[in-house]
């Protein structure tokens, strides 16, 4: 959904609220009570999402927290990545996710999530927008590794309920894991981010891990410290209101 649709939806709810109050005021009383301007705001449902980077030395790109409809997952293993996901997985830029079908809200984290770091991101949704949640970020010292979850059912959470997920690293399948100089955008290289070529198997799959020069990949700019194992991130989702 886009911004205009959202505005429209809130206006429609306000009209319903006014109409309800108007009817309530229609009584037989000859001296109606003073008119109090109604406070019109939809009752929002609030969530907090706390992510922790579990890796040794893989900074994560700004976290994208995405509220979307239940039929619009951001990826599916075994299937080709969308261009928006490819851009994120190769460069860390998550802004294209806002334009994906079915996306109601995109909330972006404060910045790079360092290894060992944690961050809490808040999300406030109109009831009509409460459906599925996705959280996604790039492991920036890789060619196209990302992690997160997609299609978490927010409706399953009552107020004060918490679910914690431990998630694995995925390979977008859009860029060969060459680990070569100039191909990795993170601080290990400072190389290229997104390019339109798809020179891997073009299916989202479990990431095989990085090899590194220390483990026999001669041209790799990565070292043993950049290796990782699953899980790579925890995601704690709480409904706060």
């Amino acid at each position: 959904m886009n911004y205009l649709t959202d505005i429209f939806k809130r206006s429609a709810m306000a009209l319903v609220a006014i109409a309800t109050i108007g009817l309530a005021g229609c009584s037989d009383n000859d001296s109606p009570a003073p008119v109090v301007p109604p406070v019109v705001s939809p009752v929002m449902q609030d969530y907090s999402v706390t992510v922790t980077n579990l890796t040794a030395n893989q900074p994560m790109s700004p976290i994208a927290v995405v509220a979307h409809t239940s039929d619009s997952k951001l990826w599916s293993t075994g299937m080709a990545a969308s261009v928006a996901l490819e851009v994120l997985a190769e460069s860390g830029d998550n802004s294209d996710l806002a334009d994906e079908n079915g996306v109601n809200e995109l909330v972006i984290g404060a910045g790079i999530l360092v290894p060992g770091g944690a961050e809490t991101i808040s999300l406030s949704l109109a009831p009509a927008d409460v459906a599925d949640l996705s959280v996604v970020t790039m492991l920036v010292n890789t060619n196209d590794a990302f992690t997160g979850t997609t299609g978490f059912d927010l409706a399953a959470l009552a107020v004060d309920d918490t679910t914690t997920l431990r998630v694995i690293a995925y390979d977008a399948g859009t860029e060969a894991n060459s680990e070569a100089k100039g191909t990795i955008p993170g601080p290990a290289d400072g190389g290229e981010g997104f390019n339109t070529d798809r020179d891997d198997n073009d299916k989202v799959h479990g990431h095989p891990g990085v090899i590194s020069a220390d483990d026999g990949l001669a041209d790799s700019v990565l070292s043993a410290a950049h290796r990782f194992d699953n899980p790579v991130m925890t995601i704690k989702i709480t409904r706060t209101q």
Binding site: A169, H207, P208, G209, L217, D229
Partner: peptide
Amino acid sequence: DSRIHRWLNPVAR
């Protein structure tokens, strides 16, 4: 081939 045949668990969904 370390560039092709390595994996991390899990291996199936």
